[in-house]
Simulated scan of single mutants.
Amino acid sequence: MTIYSLYIYDRHCACVYYQDWHRTKQPKRAGEGGGILNAVSQAVSPLTTDSAAPTPSGFSSPRNTLSSTSGLVVAVGEDPVTSLPNPTEHARSNTLPFDEEAKLVYGVVLSLRNMVKKISGRDEQFTSYRTSSYRLHLYETVSGYKFIMLSDAATDGLRFILRQIYNGPFLEYVVRNPLVPMDSRSQGVDNDYFRASLDRLVRGLSVFN
């Protein structure tokens, strides 16, 4: 059993935060103008002209997903620059850009939630669904934030973990932090303390490994 990734959406249906752990097939970076907010994740944000410069963030992923190689080799006595295939981009060639992936995840959750309410005929909540390869877990707050986690298919329900993330690191470092804009429409959750605290919490779970 293990945990793959976490998405957080605001009440405007925008993905404001993303983090992954044991995901084997990484999403492509979002395209320019794809609609993804700034600072959702350095690993999937659109590349900029200064993306190769060191970031001021003190937190680095142990899987080193926040950096990429250029795929350029300089050889003496040969052509000045020889372009080689980037292994990271090759591995991502058959995956969706992150902006499209985030929309699909939200669309699936929204459709299933509406279907559950219509079929049940009462106020019943949609909390998770399982496929042969993964399980999706959902926790929605009264303010409209949706915490969505993808885990191994054999994992039990993790809604209580998502509630713990909201009541712990999210309230502490995002909601109660005056420097973090809420409902920005242009900025994601850009807080190193939140990212590090969330990472410690998830890695400490018995289902993580």
Score class of each variant (00 low, 15 high):
D152K: 05
S132M: 08
V108Q: 07
P56Y: 08
A102M: 09
N86M: 02
S128F: 06
F160N: 01
D99Y: 03
R135V: 14
Y173C: 01
D156S: 11
P97E: 07
D192M: 08
P169N: 01
F59Y: 15
H90P: 05
L171T: 11
T155S: 05
W21N: 08
V81D: 03
Q164M: 02
G204P: 02
L37D: 05
K25P: 13
R185I: 07
A75N: 13
F194S: 10
F160G: 00
L201N: 06
P80Q: 12
L150C: 02
T155E: 03
M115A: 14
V142M: 08
I165F: 02
V73R: 10
A102S: 13
Y193P: 02
Y4A: 12
L6R: 03
E78M: 08
L198S: 02
K25F: 10
V180T: 07
F208E: 04
G34Y: 07
Q164Y: 00
S68H: 12
V74D: 10
D183R: 05
L84E: 10
R195N: 02
E124K: 15
M115Q: 09
S61G: 06
G33C: 06
Y134T: 13
R122N: 09
D183Q: 06
V175I: 11
D152M: 05
S206M: 13
G77I: 06
N191D: 05
P169D: 00
M115F: 09
K118F: 08
L104M: 08
M149V: 05
V73W: 06
